[in-house]
């Protein structure tokens, strides 16, 4: 009887814990509808665009940057210039009204996050964002919860890659990832920052 009670409490606690980080709660793997059916798969895998062509400030600023309509029109004034799918882009450009994209990777407002430091310390795009080149519409592949942040902040050597491979979407970690990661931690002087005020400033 007592044993059964302990098992019941423990299993229901485990169930609540697992539900809390399940895609049902975090909305991971849920493709988000956007005002324009923009496909990362088309632009990255199909056309071979580099991440930084659109997300230009990923290496230098706190946010990677969502491209201005002008960036779309650089190509789409020539390519598919009369496509009905791109009418919102053209009207945005013609009327000087921003496109309102739905934020997919939405960290809570009480978290300070700087893109550039992660990119410059060898955290690859796909480490957090997943295989963007295989996403017709954008979705998240991680929980974006604090436990997930801390996993890497405690043991960065599990995830780091050489700086020159940060923007490679098809990067596969080598078999001796821990050896490589430990070397990169030393080379890039990566600190294991786990104090609360690192992110909650």
């Amino acid at each position: 009887m007592l044993f059964g009670l302990i098992v019941l409490v423990a299993s229901s606690g485990y169930l609540i814990y697992q539900t809390g980080k399940s895609p049902y709660v975090t909305r991971a793997y849920e493709a988000r509808q956007q005002p324009i059916q923009f496909s990362h798969e088309r632009h990255v895998a199909g056309n071979g665009l580099d991440c930084r062509y659109c997300h230009a400030s990923a290496e230098t600023a706190a946010v990677a940057g969502i491209p201005p309509t002008k960036t779309c029109m650089n190509c789409h004034s020539q390519i598919h210039s009369s496509s009905a799918y791109l009418e919102p882009v053209r009207s945005s450009y013609a009327n000087d009204v921003s496109i309102q994209w739905v934020k997919v990777h939405d960290l809570p407002d009480f978290v300070y996050f700087d893109h550039s430091i992660h990119v410059n310390k060898g955290v690859g795009c796909t480490t957090c964002h997943g295989r963007v080149d295989q996403m017709p519409l954008m979705w998240t592949v991680k929980t974006l919860q604090m436990e997930w942040c801390l996993d890497c902040h405690r043991t960065p050597e599990k995830y780091l890659r050489p700086r020159e491979a940060v923007f490679k979407v098809d990067y596969e970690p080598p078999a001796d990832q821990l050896a490589l990661g430990s070397r990169l931690v030393k080379d890039y002087q990566v600190k294991s920052l786990t104090s609360c005020s690192t992110c909650h400033r």
Binding site: T60, A61, A62, G65, T69, I99, Q100, W101, K103, D106
Partner: peptide
């Protein structure tokens, strides 16, 4: 849900959150 509202024509030398 939050929306991101980027520039239509980004001005020179202004980087959001830089």
């Amino acid at each position: 849900a939050e929306v991101i509202v980027p520039y239509v024509r980004a001005p020179e030398e202004i980087v959001p959150a830089d």
